[in-house]
Amino acid sequence: MNFFLRKWQAGDEPSLAENANNYRIWRNLKDIFPHPYTITDAFEWVKLARKTAENLAIVVENKAVGGIGILLKDDIYCRNAEIGYWLGEPYWNKGIMSAAIEEVTGFTFANYPIHRIYAGVFEYNTGSMRALQKAGYQKEAVLRHALFKEGQLYDEHIFARYRP
């Protein structure tokens, strides 16, 4: 399925809210990602994300159906970046996310002095693990009971890719 990445823009809010308002997406993300995801949340996110080059919309058929971004670390972690992403459920299992991860990874290494990009994944999110592996990431560690979501502890699987 064809997609492209671009900066978030005004007009993305309805599609963003429609695709992000999904329990199956929310359960794989940090709690800062709201659920339910409202149109107000979408307007707030687009306003914030438009100010940075590190957060991009995943666009299919001219609709923002997901997001991907990097969080540049600081202090002694200044050569690291965390990659985060989500995609509307109708677009799962179509190769979009692994290709988007690959594109953002290449962009990050080309434009920032980053040596390592990593992602933390809930133990049950095998789709995300597969997408990372297809994009050249390797599992580095399993942090036992590191994540707390919906009143339960979960293992966090850490995947990383290094500057070529």
Rank of each mutant, 00 (worst) to 15 (best):
M1W: 04
M1E: 12
N2H: 12
R6F: 03
K7I: 05
D12S: 03
D12Y: 04
S15W: 03
A17H: 05
N22L: 04
Y23C: 05
R24L: 14
D31R: 06
D31K: 10
P34R: 08
P36E: 06
I39V: 13
I39Q: 04
D41Q: 07
F43E: 14
V46E: 06
R50Q: 15
N55I: 03
V60R: 12
K63Q: 15
V65L: 08
G67C: 04
I68S: 03
I68Y: 06
I70M: 06
L72I: 14
K73S: 04
D74P: 06
D75K: 12
Y77Q: 13
C78T: 12
R79A: 13
A81L: 06
G84N: 09
G84R: 00
G84Y: 11
Y85S: 03
G88R: 08
P90F: 05
P90N: 07
P90K: 07
Y91I: 01
W92A: 02
K94A: 05
M97T: 09
E102H: 14
T105F: 01
G106F: 07
T108M: 08
F109K: 02
H115I: 09
H115C: 02
H115Q: 12
I117G: 06
Y118P: 02
A119R: 00
A119N: 11
V121F: 05
E123P: 00
S128R: 07
R130H: 13
R130V: 10
R130C: 09
Q133G: 11
Y137S: 05
L143D: 10
R144H: 12
F148R: 08
K149W: 13
L153N: 13
L153W: 14
R161E: 13
Y162R: 12
P164S: 14
